[in-house]
Design a protein around this nucleic acid. Structure first.
Length: 555
RNA sequence: GCCCUCGUAGCUCAGCUGGAUAGAGCGUCGGACUUCUAAUCCGGUGGUCGCAGGUUCGAGUCCUGCCGGGGGCGCCA
């Protein structure tokens, strides 16, 4: 009996009460009710507050309504006990057999367990990282690489059609500064004003000259164009490669330049003008975003005739919508949150629904600590913490897990010393160790010629130990956790859940012997526990997969 | 000045979108390995949930105002 089934049973009990005239509700019976796992064991396996929620509407004291429901629920198969507690909570205890049956269902479902059709039919575009090809990926981009990709996996598990997209900023002044910096470096000149410094500029410049040995014989403007095109491609290849090694691959790399060259910007501007949402002032073209909630109106075509930065975003958004995406999610660093207002206003100006057709997620900053000290945060020296600073120090699995473990809207400090440790201080190892331990039990079982109970040979009522019940209830939570992670766009819930589940498993392992000891004859309890082990391994593997973290068979 | 975000145990953070006595991990103190991985488990320790009001049966959670940290407020990209 899962929480979902229990919820259905409670709705059924409410419906029966209404049908029999014992209960009168002004509105329809709710489609589902909240079933939660109580913090205290004294409050049963599951608890619901429906009686408190509906008491006023029903015109009954909460405890009386709870009493009516309790009588109905006690007659329900699989429910062992129902208690009324406090102001009107229903505390429900589930029969071991009804609970244990889940182990077989999980093993049966395999990799599909935890998924749903919650987002079936939704075509979702996830835009993240989108780091400028003017330098190596920064840590902010890495955070979204981990979180955005995990979110994509969670959406896919929820039935959505997901496209991962990278907006490639290869247009405008930043690229010009990049190319002049490369040219200057190649000629042995100092970094120009507003240019990019750093060792990677010299590296790229050298690589360009290897590809195009005679580039410096060209006039400066032509040489700069060579450095621009070749340099950007080299930088972009490196970024792609780094992300690939990080386990993140995009379906679409969208070039901003295309929007300007294809006339998409022009078309987007015309569309907004047709809708009456633009006007001319001071020689520039403005988008009236203020009427849609922005702080003020924004220039989209500058008085020199060039598109303002926002014009690319307009065209890009329109392009995504024309490609059939109902939901466009954009993940930005906190340093760009000032964009949210105008982007949402832009969405509304197109006649779309902000928050529905367009969602913007903001990720706060990430700091790295080593020996308790922040890693190179000197803005003055122009050194920024980069993707490699994290991944080279602690590896891909720990990096992805560490970044996906926290809500995106809080600033995080990643202690490199902690995450590099191979001890239980380190959450990713704690979870991965549980998986390896599970795998080990199954290997040992195979060596003994034992296999998990299947079909009628499985007696779920044997899984009646307290720790077995705790573990089963943890496993039963997984679909709800994945659904919440999808709906709230919060992958960290999966990581926290895995830590809880790993803990439940370790406690089970400590209390319940799975395999026969010594000369002991194999018994049904061993086969039943082996099935529980398989189910647990399935859940932890599925959860780690959603985060893009490996599930090792051995450690 | 305005906007966004955060403030929960000594430290790092959860808190299921309003529920019961606020939870983990680390740290600290003390226990548990002849048998499935001790990278584990068990117990003790630890709190004015930034502050003050409000909403209601009930607030860490919602509203308002302060305080404090971080970020952002260009016809830059």
């Amino acid at each position: 009996m899962t929480p979902e089934q229990l919820s259905t049973a409670i709705v059924g009990a409410l419906t029966d009460l209404v049908d029999s005239g014992a209960l009168t509700l002004p509105d329809a019976v709710p489609a589902s009710v909240v079933v939660e796992r109580p913090k205290s064991k004294e409050h049963g396996d599951y608890a619901t507050n429906v009686a408190l929620q509906l008491a006023k509407k029903a015109g009954l004291p909460p405890r009386d309504l709870a009493g009516l429901l309790a009588d109905r629920l006690r007659a329900t198969e699989g429910i062992a006990a129902v208690d009324i507690a406090g102001p009107g909570f229903l505390n429900i205890t589930v029969e071991a057999a009804a609970q244990g049956a889940l182990a077989a269902q999980i093993v049966e479902a395999g990799a599909a367990y935890g998924g749903s059709d919650l987002m079936a039919g939704e075509k979702v575009n996830l835009e993240f990282v989108s780091a400028n090809p003017t330098g190596p990926i920064h840590l902010g981009g890495t955070r979204w690489a981990a979180v955005g990709d995990a979110l994509g996996r969670i959406f896919e598990a929820s039935g959505a059609d997901v496209t991962r997209e990278y907006y490639f900023n290869d247009h405008g002044a930043q690229i010009d500064r990049f190319s002049t910096s490369l040219l200057a470096s190649a000629k042995g000149e100092p970094t120009p004003e507003d240019g990019y410094g750093g060792a990677y500029i010299a590296d790229i410049a050298q690589q360009v000259m290897q590809t195009e040995p005679r580039v410096l014989d060209l006039p400066d403007d032509e040489a700069q164009e060579v450095f621009r095109s070749v340099g950007v491609n080299l930088m972009f290849d490196e970024i792609k490669q780094k992300l690939h090694e990080f386990g993140v691959d995009f379906d679409v790399y969208f070039h901003e330049n295309n929007l300007h060259e294809s006339g998409a910007v022009k078309r987007a501007v015309e569309r907004l003008t047709d809708l009456g949402n633009t006007y001319e002032k001071d020689g520039a073209l403005w988008l009236s975003t203020e009427q849609f909630g922005d702080d003020k109106d924004r220039v989209i075509i500058k008085s020199d005739g060039k598109g303002a930065y926002l014009s690319g975003d307009l065209a890009y958004y329109l392009d995504k919508r024309e490609r059939g995406f109902d939901r466009c999610l954009i993940m930005l660093g906190a340093d760009h949150h000032g964009y949210v207002g105008r982007m949402m206003a832009m969405c509304a100006a197109f006649g779309d629904k902000p928050g529905e057709n367009l969602e913007i997620l903001i990720g706060q900053m990430v700091n790295l600590l080593s020996d308790g000290q922040p890693l190179r945060m000197s803005k003055r020296a122009g050194t920024v913490v980069r993707h490699d600073d994290l991944v080279d120090a602690i590896g891909v699995d720990a990096s992805r897990y560490a970044l996906a473990r926290y809500t995106s809207d809080t600033t995080i400090d990643i202690d490199l010393d902690l995450w590099a440790k191979q001890t239980n201080d380190n959450p990713v190892f704690y979870v991965q160790y549980a998986h390896a331990r599970l795998a080990s039990i199954l290997r040992n079982a195979a060596d003994l010629g034992l296999s998990a109970a299947r079909g009628d040979a499985f007696d779920p009522s044997l899984l009646s130990h307290e720790k077995e019940g705790d573990l089963l209830r943890a496993l039963a939570e997984f679909p709800r956790v994945v659904a919440a992670a999808a709906q709230l766009r919060e992958p960290h819930r999966v990581a926290r859940y895995l830590e809880d589940t790993a803990s439940s498993f370790h406690k089970f392992y400590d209390a319940c012997r799975v395999l026969p000891m010594g000369d002991e004859e194999p018994a049904p309890i061993h086969a039943a526990r082996l099935l529980l082990v398989e189910a647990t391994k399935t859940v932890i593997a599925n959860g780690l997969h959603l985060l893009g973290v490996s599930a090792p068979e051995r450690m």
